[in-house]
Computed example of a mutant assay.
Amino acid sequence: MKTPDSSFAYNLHDVTCLFRKNFDRRAIRFDLTRAQWRALKSIRRREGMSQAELAEFLEMEPIAIGRVIDRLVAADFVERRADPSDRRRWCLHLTAKAHDVTDDMEVLAEALRHEALAGISQTDFDAFERVLAQIRANLLTIDPTTESSDS
């Protein structure tokens, strides 16, 4: 194993940035910001979550996520529905328009992942995922309050 000055964390960061740049370039036709896309994807995974839950999940300030949701509501991507068990809580739901766009964006993301993994064997990729999972587990053991929002 290399010494602690290994640049693997920088490589992880660079790969993440390159994924984002490539995705943003391909997704420009959807006219959504990254924050809006992340919100749509998160709501799709947990339909009915509250705005506060979304803010916590995305590690964003409530006021910032409120603006994102306001724009998505105005663009007819998201609906706020009253929670029948708590009048103060609003549940977030995707519209049919949002489902169409998120379906298209998932196809785009899958194509990007496929291209990014070209030339990598399934065995190597499986080992990579195990290593990432172990690094994540190690970091959570150090500070369990740093639970990732993308889990």
Rank of each mutant, 00 (worst) to 15 (best):
residue 1 M to W: 09
residue 2 K to V: 12
residue 3 T to M: 10
residue 4 P to K: 03
residue 8 F to T: 05
residue 8 F to Y: 13
residue 12 L to P: 07
residue 14 D to G: 15
residue 14 D to Q: 15
residue 22 N to M: 01
residue 23 F to L: 01
residue 27 A to L: 00
residue 30 F to Q: 04
residue 31 D to N: 13
residue 35 A to N: 11
residue 37 W to I: 05
residue 38 R to F: 09
residue 40 L to E: 00
residue 42 S to R: 02
residue 43 I to V: 02
residue 47 E to Q: 12
residue 49 M to W: 00
residue 50 S to C: 06
residue 51 Q to A: 13
residue 53 E to G: 15
residue 57 F to P: 07
residue 59 E to P: 07
residue 61 E to L: 10
residue 62 P to R: 02
residue 63 I to A: 14
residue 64 A to P: 03
residue 66 G to T: 04
residue 67 R to M: 02
residue 69 I to F: 00
residue 72 L to V: 05
residue 72 L to R: 01
residue 72 L to Y: 02
residue 73 V to C: 04
residue 73 V to R: 02
residue 73 V to P: 01
residue 77 F to M: 05
residue 77 F to L: 02
residue 77 F to G: 01
residue 77 F to D: 01
residue 78 V to P: 02
residue 79 E to S: 14
residue 79 E to L: 07
residue 83 D to E: 05
residue 84 P to F: 02
residue 86 D to M: 03
residue 86 D to Y: 04
residue 87 R to P: 15
residue 87 R to I: 10
residue 88 R to P: 07
residue 88 R to M: 05
residue 91 C to R: 13
residue 92 L to M: 01
residue 98 A to I: 01
residue 100 D to N: 13
residue 105 M to Q: 03
residue 107 V to S: 13
residue 107 V to M: 06
residue 108 L to H: 04
residue 110 E to M: 14
residue 110 E to H: 15
residue 111 A to T: 14
residue 112 L to I: 08
residue 113 R to I: 12
residue 118 A to T: 15
residue 118 A to F: 09
residue 121 S to Y: 01
residue 125 F to K: 06
residue 125 F to D: 07
residue 128 F to C: 11
residue 134 Q to H: 11
residue 135 I to N: 10
residue 137 A to E: 08
residue 140 L to I: 10
residue 141 T to Q: 06
residue 141 T to W: 03
residue 141 T to A: 15
residue 146 T to W: 03
residue 146 T to A: 13
residue 147 E to V: 15
residue 149 S to V: 06
residue 150 D to P: 02
residue 151 S to I: 11
